[in-house]
Every structure is written in structure tokens, then in C-alpha cells.
Simulated scan of single mutants.
Amino acid sequence: MSMHTGRLVITPREPDCCPERPLVVRVLTETGFIEGLLPGRAQDFMVGPAFLDLISFVGCAVAVSTDAAAGLPFTHVRLPSDPGRPQWCHGRNTRAPRCPRCRTPRTEWRAQVAAAMELGDHAIDCPACGASARPWSWDWRHQGGFGRRLIVVEEVFPGEAMPTPGVLDALTMATGRAWHFFYVQD
């Protein structure tokens, strides 16, 4: 059994913001980030002709396979449906978030964040300084995050790829909202 390489997630900075999917598809298609849907998949797109210009890969041996026919994990873009409220995206790479006020890492964070998300947009408290803030206000250091409108680049190792200003600026201009990114590894 192979482990999931990871995913790069691009989403509006405001986790409740959910631009219409057709608008996001149009922007990503026009920039060359994506092209057609993968056969038989309603949410998965092939990478577009400008994908490698819009994602900066770092590292000494970066391998990007985009061949869906090979039967192996391959890089592609998923645009999941709107879940109706912000989703907590985290994985084995996610570490304790830092308090937005005092920067102290939050211990025992998984259970508290899960409970806050189950109840809606409730805050979590910092045991060091007493600050109370919604989970997405904490600093996750690009190792997890929250959102409704997600652009998920599958089979990207955490930290190995970053969206360029070109794709982030295009999304910001089209939606009127700032976008950011993080990584999740199952």
C-alpha cells in the first residue's frame, strides 16, 4: 500500500467565502492551470498547459507525473463541491497551531478544534494568554487550514510546490477575495 504523497490546497483566506465553482473553473482554465475534466470524474481536472508556470516546484528531485493512464498516483486538480460550511483540512503533516496573539503552540489541539468545528464556528482558547479565536485564526504554518471553496492539487509533497502570484492574483481579481494555500498529507 502506497502512502498519499500529499496535496496542495488553495482556498480563499476567509474560510466562509465560497466563490461559485463555474467562476473558479473559468479562471483556472483561462490561466492554463487546468484543462478538461478527467474521464469519468466530475470534480477532477487534468493540469493545464501553464500549470508548471503557475506552480513553483522546489527540491532537487521533483517528479510530476500527469499521466492518468499509467495507473499510478498522478498530479491533477480537484474542485470539490461546496460543503456548506468551512471544512477543516488536516493530516499527518499538521502540527500544533500557534496562538494568533502570543504565538504559543496549542497543546491538545486536535480534540478542541474538532469540537469547535462540530459546533460551528466556535472559538478555541489559548491556555498561555487566554486569547479566544476561531480555529482558522490560529497560525497553522501552511500545514493545514480551513475553507469551503477548495482547489486541491493532488499528489504534491507538502512544501514541494507553491502557487505563484500569477494564479493567486487571477483568483483574487476574479473573486474580489484574497486566496492562500496550505498542504495536507493523509
Results as ranks from 00 to 15, higher is better:
G147S: 03
L150F: 00
F157G: 01
F33E: 02
P100C: 01
W140S: 01
R177H: 08
L171K: 06
R177G: 00
G84S: 07
A50R: 08
V58P: 00
D139Y: 10
Q87T: 08
G166Q: 14
E30C: 03
Y183A: 11
L150D: 02
I124W: 00
Q185F: 07
T104R: 14
P135K: 01
C102F: 06
V113Y: 00
D169Q: 14
P86V: 00
G71W: 13
S81G: 04
T66E: 08
R13C: 02
A50Q: 14
G91E: 05
S56F: 09
G36R: 06
A69M: 07
M46G: 08
C129I: 11
R148S: 12
A131L: 13
L168K: 13
L168W: 06
T94G: 04
S2C: 06
P19H: 10
E20Y: 03
V25W: 00
W140N: 03
D53N: 10
T104V: 15
A114S: 12
R103S: 15
C60A: 10
A111M: 09
D169W: 10
D125W: 01
G40W: 05
I55D: 01
R103G: 01
P39L: 11
V27R: 04
R110W: 10
D121T: 02
P83T: 15
V27A: 01
P105M: 02
M162A: 12
E118F: 12
L79S: 08
R21K: 14
G71Y: 07
L8E: 05
D186F: 10
D82E: 14
F57V: 09
I124A: 03
F74C: 15
T5I: 06
T31M: 08
T94C: 01
Q112K: 01
V62G: 11
W109R: 04
H142Y: 10
P49I: 04
G32P: 02
I10K: 02
R149C: 10
H122V: 05
C17W: 05
R95S: 09
P19L: 13
M117P: 01
D186P: 15
P83A: 09
L168A: 12
H122M: 06
T164Q: 15
R41S: 15
A50M: 12
W88N: 01
P163M: 06
Q87D: 07
I10W: 03
A116E: 01
V152P: 03
G120Q: 02
A50D: 09
M162G: 12
G40K: 04
F33L: 11
H122Q: 14
G6A: 02
V62C: 12
P100M: 02
W138R: 00
P12G: 04
L150Q: 07
L72H: 07
A174Q: 13
P73T: 05
D169I: 13
V47W: 04
I55N: 00
P73C: 15
P135F: 04
A96I: 00
T31H: 05
I55K: 05
G120S: 05
G40L: 08
F157A: 13
R101C: 15
M117C: 14
T172V: 06
P15A: 06
W109I: 00
T172Q: 10
L38Y: 06
R7H: 04
A68N: 13
N93C: 05
P15K: 08
D67S: 13
A50K: 15
